[in-house]
Every structure is written in C-alpha cells, then in structure tokens.
Write a protein that binds this DNA or RNA. Structure first.
Lengths: 159, 159
DNA sequence: TATTGTTATACTCTATAACTATA
DNA sequence: TATAGTTATAGAGTATAACAATA
C-alpha cells in the first residue's frame, strides 16, 4: 500500500471507513436496491405510474379476472393498501372493477385496452431502465444475481 | 414436470401468473430485500436498534470523531434525518456529541464503551440473521450475489 | 457566501384495526 | 364464523425548505 499523495493531506478529510457495514450483504442489498428504485421511479413517473401500480397493472393484465385479495397476495402487500392503487388505475381508465357472478363480495379486475397498451409502454420503459441500471454487470454476473435472488425468494427449504 | 395432484384440483384457485413481474431483476431485488429487511428488523428490535441506528453506530464506532454531515453522507441519507437517529443513540448512552475544537459548527461523534459493546452484540445478532437469511445460498452463490451488488454500487464506469 | 446542525413539514410506504356486505 | 373490499389511522422512511450559528 502506497502512502496517500501529499496533495491530499489538506483537503482529504480522511476517508470514512465503511467496511464494517459493507461486510453485511443485507446492507449492500439496501444500497443497491435504493439506486435501482430511484431510477425506476424516474422511468415510470412520466407514464403516471408508481412502482406498485406498475406491478399491479402487469399482474392484472396477465391474469384477467383476478380479485383484489389475490392481487394483494401476489404482490405481498396488504389488502387494504391495494385499494387506492386500484382506484388510481381505474380512474386512469387502465382497468375495470366488476362484480364476480357467483360471489358478490369479490371484484374481478381486468385491464382495458388502454391498460394493455400502457402495460406494453411501461414494460419497454422499465426494460430500458434495467439496461441502464445493470449495465455494469456482465451477462454472467446479471444471471448470477437473478438466480441468487430467486433462490432467496424460494426460501431456505428448496434446494 | 409432473401434473399437480388431483387433490389440488378443487381448491387450487388457479395459480397466478407473475412471470411478467419476476422477469424484472429490480422486482426480485425488492422482494428479496423485503424478506431480509423483515428478518433484520426482528433481529435488532430486542436490542433497541433500528436498521439506520445500527448502521450509524457501526460507522461512528469505526470512525471516532466523525461529524453528522459526514455520517449522513456515508449512509446516503439527508443531514436532517440523521438528527433524530443520533438523538436516540445519544440518549441511550451509546455515543457522545462533542464540539470540534477548531470548528464550532461541527459535532464530533464518538461511541461510548456501552456503544462499542452494543456494536459488538448487534453485529453478532446481525451475523446470525444473515446466516439464517442466506442459508439457501451456496458459498459461491453468496459470493456472486455480494460481488454483483458491489459492482452495482461502484457504478457503471468502474469495470 | 457556504457549511453544520436543527426544526418543521410533507409525502410515500407499510401495518393494523374495524366496519360492511356478503358467504 | 369466515371472506372481500373498504376506511381510517399510525408508524416508519425519506425529501425539501428554512433558520441560527459559524466559517
């Protein structure tokens, strides 16, 4: 290890040692996700979508007739918190809420034509965002990241 | 792939297709981090620490005399938001705020003896938490995850 | 004029409890 | 009794603006 150059003595306030924190994988996940999240927010904002409404739109588009409870369960958010998300998507004309014939409690969600188009447009925007965010990774690194995350999500009792 | 067992026919409401969402690495990061975050919260709660106060305690312990601004910068949070975190750690007797001799604006933060002990105890708890959370990964997978995250944090112009 | 710590504020995200209408 | 949707609310986390003291 070389000494720091003399020029750095006056203004280099001494680098902060954050190695203790970065030793934890969870902390790295937090910081990395924070970067991705910020860029995604920027990518979706012009479309009038937030992360959760984007996620909901995709699930509804791919699962016509899904109920709010099932949607909430799929997104791992509370039933009560999905309401305003669906409200916004419905008011934007991107999906419809209809009574289920044989269960008048449940509401069947379906993407409208505008919703399907928005889904496609948003997916293209998010794909571009991911290309930007993960550009520092090689294909192999990206694949390794994706499969490690999948393994975590599958749980400890799965291989 | 085997067919699902007949017993599942009646109650299996039809599996939800969430492949469109999981195609996005960012979504996997969100879900995986959410799991880790919840477990970490549980691990730190008995010690009276939150994630941000744990992080702050580590940085202060490893960087005696650091100012609040430098700490906030290191943790990538706003200066204004670090105040209550430091307040809590100070009131818990885990660190001290002292005037810096040649700059009466700045406050030098130092961990107390109790703070250093709490840091050690909390680190052991978090290490146990990470062992639990990442138990599904092989050593190689965990390393790949850590290095991919480090690459993301280093930015696109560093490889 | 710029920086450090601070306060106030607001907005998002998330979690819980409780209500209604159905089943 | 349990479920689906809803409302209200409270707690974190986060971001901005503005101020006093100091440089």
């Amino acid at each position: 290890m070389a000494e720091p150059p003399p020029a750095a003595r006056t203004d280099a306030v001494e680098a902060v040692n954050d190695s203790g924190l970065h030793a934890f994988t969870g902390y790295r996940m937090k910081r990395a996700f924070s970067l991705v999240q910020a860029d995604l927010h920027t990518a979706l904002a012009p479309l009038g979508l937030r992360m959760v409404s984007f996620s909901a739109l995709i699930i509804v588009a791919d699962n016509p007739g899904i109920t709010q409870s099932r949607l909430a369960q799929t997104l791992a958010i509370e039933r009560s918190n999905i309401v305003v998300v669906i409200d916004a998507l419905e008011q934007a004309g991107l999906l419809t809420r209809k009574q289920v014939p044989h269960n008048r409690r449940a509401h069947a969600l379906r993407a409208t034509l505008a919703g399907l188009r928005m889904r496609d447009k948003a997916c293209r925007a998010v794909e571009a965002h991911e290309s930007r965010c993960f550009a520092a990774l090689t294909e192999a690194e990206h694949d390794a990241l994706r499969s490690a995350l999948a393994r975590l999500l599958a749980g400890p009792d799965s291989g």
